[in-house]
């Protein structure tokens, strides 16, 4: 899975691409841990994710837990339809703050209304 990260002093936007499963899920965990460890909030732009399995869901929950432990916020945005369905199926959509696009997610975090 490819991953691109854009960050300023306050918020990092992660753009995972491909499969959020197996190695892709592990890569997301690692990247998110580093970003949160550097003291930034996280926006996860999931537009480029083509396939997600239970390991990918586990990585998302792990990211959320790590953020809480670091008193940081996490917001998801630009969810593909299949990932949105999977979050609804597992009721994880009630856990995450989910936005239509990156701009809304970043704004919410800056305003303190996400995560």
């Amino acid at each position: 899975m490819k991953q691109r990260t854009e960050a300023d002093r306050e918020v990092a936007v992660l753009h995972p691409e491909g499969r959020l499963a197996g190695e892709g899920a592990a890569a997301l965990r690692k990247e998110a841990r580093e970003v949160l460890g550097s003291g930034r909030h996280v926006v996860l732009d999931l537009a480029g994710v083509k396939f997600t399995d239970s390991e990918g869901l586990s990585a998302l929950v792990s990211l959320y837990r790590t953020a809480m432990e670091n008193s940081k916020a996490v917001a998801l945005c630009s969810l593909p339809r299949n990932l949105r369905s999977l979050l609804e199926l597992t009721r994880l959509h009630r856990v995450f703050d989910i936005y239509e696009n990156e701009a809304l997610a970043v704004s919410a975090i800056r305003a303190g209304s996400a995560g």
Binding site: D53, S54, L57, S58, V61, S62, Y64, R65, L86, L89, T90, R91, L92, R94, V95
Partner: peptide, 20 residues
């Protein structure tokens, strides 16, 4: 069933199979 509200990290696989 996994408890999403409790931030359970595992246990989603069998639930996905049974739900689908």
């Amino acid at each position: 069933e996994p408890e999403a509200a409790a931030l359970q990290e595992g246990g989603y696989g069998v639930f996905i199979m049974k739900s689908t």
